[in-house]
Every structure is written in C-alpha cells, then in structure tokens.
Design a protein around this nucleic acid. Structure first.
Lengths: 216, 216
DNA sequence: CAAAAAAGAGAGCAGTGCTCTTGCACCGGA
DNA sequence: TCCGGTGCAAGAGCACTGCTCTCTTTTTTG
C-alpha cells in the first residue's frame, strides 16, 4: 500500500514537481480520501522523505550498475559513473531536484536519508581506491592550512588513500553535481549546446583531477 | 511600494524559504489585504521572479566588488570571486536556493532573468581574458568530438580565448556552484568540517584547471 | 463466531493563490 | 464649487491545500 502511494506520488511528482505535490491529488488518483493516507504517512513531509530516500537509492543503483567491474580501467569506470548520474538526472529531473536541489519543506534532511545519500560518493571512493591499489596515486601537495582537515577527511573516508587524493575526490564529487545540476536546472540553456559531449569531457577532466588519468 | 513588498517578501523568504512564501503573509506584514498586492505583482510567481532577479544582482555585485582591480594577479582574483560567491551564498541561503536550487513550481525561468544570471559567469570570463592578455593561456587538447561545440562556445563567449580554455572555464563555472551548493544545502554535513579551508583549496584547483596557475 | 485491530469515510479547521466587485480618496477641468 | 475620471485598497468568495477529529466498515485473529 505504501508502495502504491509512493508510486502515485512519484507520477504526480514527474508531472508537477515537488512544490505542488498534493496529498489530496495522490489520494484521488488512488480512489481514496485524503485522510486515509495519514494511516501510511504521518505527514506530507514524511511522504517526501520516503521519495527522497527512494530517489537516492534509484540513483545509487543506476550508478552502481555501470561501475560493476572493479577490474576495469578506473578512469573509464569513473566517467561511466558520472555519465550514469547525468543520464539518471536527466531522466528524473524532479527527483533529482528533490535530492540535490533546494531542500523543499520546512527544511530538515532527516537522518534516515544519510546512508542512501552516500552511495554515489562511496562508489567514487571505491573506484579511486581500486586505482590506488594497482598503481599508487598522488596529488599536488596541500597548503599547510588544509592539512588537519585533509587528514581528518582521509581518516573518515578512505584511510588507505593519500590525503591530497581524498581532498581532490571530495571536491570532484561536489563538482560533478554542479555540472549535472547546471544541465538539469537549465543553467546551460543558450550556453552549452552539445551537452553530452561537453559533459563527457568535463567528467574526464574530473577523473584527471583526482589522478585517475596520468598526464601532463 | 513594489520595493516595500519585495523587502517584506525577502524577510519572509529568509525565515521560511521560498516554498512557503505567502502573499497573504506579506500583505499582513505590510498592513494590507492580500488582493491589494495584485496591483503590483500579477501573481506570486512574478514576485518570485522579481526576487530572483534581485538575488542574481545582489550576488553579482558582491562578486564584482571583490574582483575590482583588473591588474591584479588573475589567480588571486579568481579565488576571491569564488569566495565571494560562497560567502554570499552562506549569508543568503534561501536566496541562493532560489537562483541555483531547484526551479520552484511549474515555473520556467523567464527571459528577464538571463542577463542577471550571467553576471558571475561574465566576471569569470573577464578575469581569464585579462590573464590571457598578459600571459597567453593554453589547455590540454580537446577530443575530436568536442571540437565543434568548443568552437561554438568560444565564438559565443570569448572569441579571443583558445577554445580549450573556454571549455575549461565553463566547466569550472558549473563546478564552482557545485561546491557552493553542496555546502549551502548541507551535503557536506558530517563530511567536510573546515569548509572554508576546503573551499579555498578547491577554488585554487579550479583556477589551476582553467590555466590561471602555472604548475606541474 | 465473536472480539479486536486495521483501514477508510466524512466533516471540518485554518490556511493558501487568485478573481471580481465595491468603495474610498484624490485630481484636473468646467 | 461641483463632476467625473483615475488609482488604490478593501471585502467577499472560489477552489484548493495539509491536517485532525470522529465514526463506520472491513479484515484479521483468537
């Protein structure tokens, strides 16, 4: 039942966007009365939270699907994951807005969303870790002011990687979603035309920036 | 009068966010009745649009203020602009969400917002152009598939710059807002702690990625 | 089969964006 | 001085929203 509600909500989400997702409209689509929905979701925001978690998971699965083979060329795996994120986002713009756009309701990202939100990031870490395992990675030396934070970051996320690589990785992670977000939210309209080619190249640049591609 | 309305709306925006910006509440704060507002803004979305343009302008001014001197070190100017964008976004999170978060309701960004939206981008182009003028910039060669788009992009944005630099610049532009957005929207919570130091370094990496910093 | 639990129906409250009509206050021209 | 525009605000009202409450129906369980 909760699944049916989420399905209907997702359909409505795709049409209208999160801002005008209406419990009553969802209920209408299911032939119920609005108050009946409150048996399954205590509030509209809880429904939204459920959709957010599902969206994170859906994106995570799409990304993991293309990153399957840990043996393959890490740079190729990296760009494949980036492109999977982009393709998923373009196919589900409203769900993408839900998770990487402005936080919608009274603005509270519940704890429950954290593990789902981390999937793509963990995937990218895994790819870099594999690359580091086969051929050691290094990066530009860090400024002194960033050393403590970099050590902490590395200890938290990937103790086996050099801290300057972890810093580059986190930056690339955020930058990836900057590229995707600009395309999905229309910031590239009338600026970039061949967005697929542009994005592919940008993803390769990101791969290089974390050291996955040897080069000048 | 429209200024007073926008002021009240901005105050409410800062408290509650765009989703629950209510015409009636704005009217209440001004001691008017809601229908009176429709003399000045034909609809809620028009008010939102006005706020969006103001936000773009406010951000643009903040960025231009720190980028004043065209003579100074281009890398330093670049990071200064990046930091100004970050500081402005952290000081005005809801307005930032309005312009770089998910587009609000059904609502497609009207043509009127385009020039205001371009200011930061143009500013970055200007910095890179100055740098290219004094010491010529180059970048990694582009893949064949991207050549046409790169030429088009360069012709549109900066005919005097090498096309591979323009491509890097556009990518860096989007990536900058990925970094800022992740911080403002809380994606860095429990991940990055010393966000100011992290961001400064990330901005320097972006400067390097467009060629502003010579390096290994 | 009967009691208990779960699920839906319906009415109602306070709030929203928006429209339409009414009324008030000001102003220039006769 | 009066008359008629004109600009502005008020008020009522429509259709909608999230949400709460009580009441009835259905289903499950002992």
């Amino acid at each position: 039942m909760t699944a049916a509600i989420k399905d209907a909500a997702r359909r409505q989400l795709a049409h209208e966007g999160a801002a005008k997702l209406s419990l009553r409209a969802v209920a209408r689509e299911l032939g119920m009365v609005s108050s009946a929905l409150y048996r399954y979701f205590p509030s509209r925001d809880d429904l939204l939270t459920a959709l957010i978690i599902d969206a994170y998971d859906s994106l995570g699965e799409a990304a993991e699907a293309v990153a399957a083979a840990p043996g393959a060329d890490p740079a190729r795996r990296w760009t494949a994951v980036c492109e999977a994120v982009r393709v998923w986002a373009l196919a589900h713009p409203h769900e993408y807005a839900l998770i990487y756009g402005s936080p919608v309701p009274g603005y509270s990202a519940p704890q429950a969303t954290v593990p789902a939100a981390a999937r793509v990031g963990l995937l990218l870490i895994g790819i870099v870790r594999d690359a580091h395992g086969t051929s050691g990675l290094t990066g530009l030396p860090l400024p002194a002011g960033l050393r403590p934070e970099a050590e902490r970051l590395a200890a938290d996320l990937a103790p086996d990687l050099p801290s300057e690589v972890v810093v580059a990785l986190v930056a690339a992670w955020a930058e990836l979603f900057g590229l995707v977000g600009f395309e999905v939210f229309g910031q590239f309209n009338r600026v970039v035309e061949d967005r697929a080619a542009f994005f592919r190249h940008a993803a390769e640049r990101l791969a290089r920036s974390v050291g996955l591609t040897a080069g000048p």
